[in-house]
Design a binder for these strands. Structure first.
Lengths: 136, 136
DNA sequence: TTAGATGCAAAGTGTTTGCAGCCTG
DNA sequence: CAGGCTGCAAACACTTTGCATCTAA
C-alpha cells in the first residue's frame, strides 16, 4: 500500500472510484493494522464499528484494492485467501505449527530474468512452509 | 508416481490399503495418462467406463495417493486442485493465455538449504505465471 | 468373516452475483 | 441528480461428510 492513507485514497479516486464510507473504513483499517488479512477477519473487525457493513462489500473492496495495486492477494492455505498490505517484492514463510505468516523480503531471480525455458515469466507465486524460528 | 503400475499398487498395498476396483482403475488411468489432472476430469474420463464410480471415491483416492507420495497436489488456480503424476522435485509454469501447465524441473535452492531467516523450510511451494513459448 | 471402501446425497465453506434502494460527487 | 455502490440473500463451485451397503483379502 502507499505510505499514507491519503495517498491510497487518491489512488482509488484517480481510478474513478467513489470514496464511500465503507471503502474509507476498510482502507483506514488496513493502514492502521498492516499485515496478512482474510476477508472474514476484516469483516469481523469492522462490522461492529460500522453497523451496516456487508461481506459482499468487503470482498469487492479487497478485490478492487488488489487491482489497484494497493494489496497483494495470497493463497497460502487451500481454503482461504489472504490479503497482504505489503506490496513490495517478497515471498512468505508459513509456519505449519503456529500458523504464522512471515514476510520474506526477496526477489525471485527467475522472475527478475523474465524468462524460463523460453516462457515469459510475469509473476512468481511462491511461499515456504515449515516451522518458524519461534516454534523451533 | 512409481515407474510401473504394479509398483504403485504395491505401495498402496504396503500401506494396508485395499486394492479395490476403483483404486486400480484410477491408478491405471494415471499411469497411462500422466500429467496434471483435476478430480473432475478424472471422474469424467472414468465414469463412462466404470459405471458406478462416484466423485467422493475419486476425491478420496486422490488424497490417498498424495499421502502415499504417488501424486503431488498443486494449487495453481484459485478454484480447483490439480494432481501431478510427476512427483520428482520441480516447479510449474502456468500459461495465462492458453492455460497450459508446464513442468519446470528444478530444485529450490532455499529448500535445499533447509533454512531461511532462522525458520526451518520443509517445503517450497512455487509456480511461475506468464505466457508460454508456444503462445508467444 | 469383517474391517475397510463405495456411492449417494446432503452439507460445508469461502466467494460471487442479482437486484432494489441508497449515497457520493 | 445519476451512475456507482451497498446490503441482503441466494447462488456457486469445489470438496467433504454421514451412513447404509458392499467387497477385498
Amino acid at each position: 500500500m502507499k505510505s499514507t492513507l491519503e495517498e491510497s485514497l487518491e489512488i482509488l479516486s484517480g481510478l474513478g472510484l467513489v470514496l464511500t464510507l465503507q471503502r474509507r473504513a476498510i482502507l483506514k483499517f488496513l493502514h492502521e493494522q498492516q499485515g496478512h488479512w482474510t476477508a472474514e477477519a476484516i469483516y469481523g473487525e469492522l462490522r461492529p464499528r460500522y453497523g451496516s457493513l456487508s461481506r459482499a462489500t468487503v470482498y469487492k473492496t479487497l478485490e478492487l484494492l488488489c487491482e489497484a495495486g494497493e494489496l497483494q492477494c495470497l493463497r497460502l492455505r487451500k481454503d482461504v485467501m489472504h490479503y497482504d498490505t505489503f506490496t513490495g517484492p517478497h515471498h512468505h514463510f508459513l509456519c505449519e505449527q503456529c500458523g504464522a505468516i512471515i514476510d520474506i523480503p526477496m526477489e525471485c531471480p527467475i522472475k527478475a530474468s523474465g524468462r524460463i525455458e523460453g516462457h515469459r515469466v510475469d509473476r512468481c507465486i511462491a511461499y515456504f512452509a515449515g516451522v518458524c524460528e519461534a516454534c523451533l
